[in-house]
Design a protein around this nucleic acid. Structure first.
Lengths: 374, 374
DNA sequence: AGGCTATTTGAGACCGGTCTCACTTGTCAA
DNA sequence: TTGACAAGTGAGACCGGTCTCAAATAGCCT
């Protein structure tokens, strides 16, 4: 009959105390497991609590202690399996240490990220893990830092915010993948990134707002230049995240006079789009085009041919960032550190020699590549 | 120099009041945006707040109001893209309604689920969304219900808990998929589920602890029997979740005398394992074996051949459950409802005619199936 | 027994908000 | 001029825990 909006006042310490015939302070001590109480009283209180179905109000507890045993996580997009795995890592590590996880989505939008951070801060999380959506719009993150709440950056670091960060070795990974393609004989290698950009053409580092993206591009360029490739940046394309954009970019790329013979896809979602586009163009991997993708997502291992990938320790990235954060929270404060986790190159069958001549017989040699060194 | 464990006391209403030269009550009114205050005072307080960098302590606010504007979500495994999408749906809908999301992982373990629920309840979430790990171990969920906190079950329903649930039409979906295989000429169809079980052989509904699984099996059996298949349950296998188990199950299945000619995989993860196993056995889909999977995961569209799937509206499942929950929280209380979202069958190329004779020429007819009705 | 310390217990302040209630002031109609 | 009523403001209780401090009780030694 009651409209259930008022959820029948819950049992409090006071109630238990009354039922057990002791003072509120004593009941609180045994229920909160602090201070001292005689075994007899302890039992009496616990019995009463059990009988009444007492459950502590963590809100009230957090308010007095100032600690909520909760960490806030702001992630680009949980729907993306990459972040899904990372969140799982965070969540497992947090749980093991007795912390809870408050999750928020930024949709890779700096404004939303700011508001998420504020809300989380308002809820008095003990610390924050954030995958910053932008390298430039970071005032709110510096505010967190200034407020004294521990902050750990996940997957991406920020040059102007001196704070803990757990990232993968993007530069080395991109360079390694590039070298694999170079070793297979490619000289026209396209690098396709999801990073938001009005103009898909790359004009320089100022366009890039994410450290991860920047480092990968740097690794790609460095490896290319080392191999004597002229103007490798010609083949960099941005903004492939929006639906349909990837295929337009690739179509553009493949119709030009000096079309690339290999593609390096900067993340899993882009790679997926790239793969589908290539297939819809009736091109064959690796005979017509070689492909390497970042992140060892499920699908890359079951396509024909399976895709060679740069495997990133995503779960560990999450677990490790949570561990770092919790260390900070519990006071093991060292100086801010940038923890870099290594990546592995997994050679499958998407890399082959470049087509020797346009339109002539396809190179029939066995697909796949065994790079001597990562 | 300070050890930073004490995060420098934050600015409170009292501080702002003092700075603005008004009473705490007045400052609270303008900062909390309730009651009345003259424009002049309002401005003075806001200016002071701005100057001091005031941010409300949501914990304290929640404690007095009794509402935390937070919903708790307990999910089987966020790492699973299925749940990832659902969580995204929840999170988007919640955010839009001004709610935050506290996320917990149960790892499909009822005990962990119980503890997660308790913690969330302790944090005084305004409501809960749970994907129950078990149909039998549900006392904690009934407790939630009894405590008056709104609860919505996601993806799975519980016969003995009368509470809101948002699920997909599993029975119909399984039946439709089964009919597709029957229509293609198959009479020996294997159903492989991930549901935990010591013994992979199906002995009856009592073994099953999830409504979803149960309904799918029922749909499969019903459609099979309608088509006059004798003892279709012979081909049901459970416990394919554990690594390596799927391949053993399939190997067993395919070496028997009356080996199945088609497989219906009860979820995406299982289907993935099944696919890889089939390929490692050097069998061809759909010539040697037809395959249909639940959930339109990324990878199913890029394999060769692409896999026909039962597409489930996972994002909507999440968004819808959040909407139902929030309706409940804000008082639009109707009677508990079970909302069933429809699924769609997506025909790709993994279904063909069964091999006519063992070892003879493979059926060369064009793969793919166009079921007349779902 | 008396004195001293260690342990157990209770009273009440406190965390940072909200909210009720009473008081002051201003406006307008009678 | 006076009364009624609305708007603005302040004092202080309250939410449900924790924590400090002092009082009460117990245990031990000489």
């Amino acid at each position: 009959m009651n409209s259930s909006i008022l959820p029948k006042r819950l049992v409090t310490v006071q109630d238990v105390a009354r039922a057990a015939g002791v003072s509120k302070a004593t009941a609180a001590r045994v229920l909160g497991n602090y201070g001292t109480a005689s075994p007899a009283v302890k039992e009496k209180v616990l019995a009463a609590a059990r009988g009444l179905g007492y459950r502590a109000n963590e809100l009230a507890r957090s308010m007095t202690t100032g600690r909520s045993q909760t960490i806030g996580v702001v992630v680009g997009d949980i729907e993306n399996p990459y972040f899904g795995q990372a969140v799982r890592g965070i969540s497992d590590a947090a749980l093991a240490a007795g912390f809870n996880v408050l999750l928020a989505n930024s949709g890779e939008d700096a404004a939303k990220e700011r508001s998420a951070v504020q809300v989380l801060l308002g809820k008095r999380v003990d610390g924050l893990i954030v995958t910053p959506a932008s390298m430039s719009d970071t005032q709110h993150l510096r505010d967190v830092q200034r407020s004294g709440r521990p902050l750990v950056l996940l997957d991406r670091s920020l040059p102007d915010v001196t704070v803990d960060a757990v990232v993968t070795d993007d530069r080395a990974a991109a360079a390694a993948a590039t070298r694999v393609l170079l070793a297979a004989g490619h000289s026209r290698i396209a690098y396709i990134s999801a990073t938001a950009s009005d103009d898909p053409v790359y004009r320089g580092p100022h366009q890039i707002s994410l450290s991860t993206v920047l480092e990968r591009i740097e690794g790609f360029l460095a490896a290319s230049r080392d191999a004597g490739i002229d103007q490798p940046e010609r083949y960099i394309r941005l903004g492939a995240a929006r639906r349909g954009m990837a295929s337009r970019i690739i179509a553009d790329l493949l119709t030009g006079p000096e079309r690339p013979t290999a593609i390096l896809a900067s993340d899993n979602v882009v790679a997926f789009e790239v793969f589908k586009t290539i297939r819809s163009l009736a091109m064959t991997i690796p005979q017509d085009l070689s492909l390497i993708a970042f992140h060892d997502a499920d699908w890359t291992s079951v396509t024909s041919p399976p895709i060679s990938v740069i495997s990133q320790p995503v779960y560990d990235l999450g677990a490790s960032s949570a561990a770092v954060l919790i260390d900070r929270i519990t006071g093991q404060s060292e100086t801010p550190a940038r923890r870099v986790l290594p990546t592995t190159f997994i050679a499958r069958q998407s890399v082959g020699a470049p087509p020797t001549l346009r339109g002539t017989a396809r190179s029939a040699e066995p697909a796949g590549s065994q790079p001597k060194r990562g």
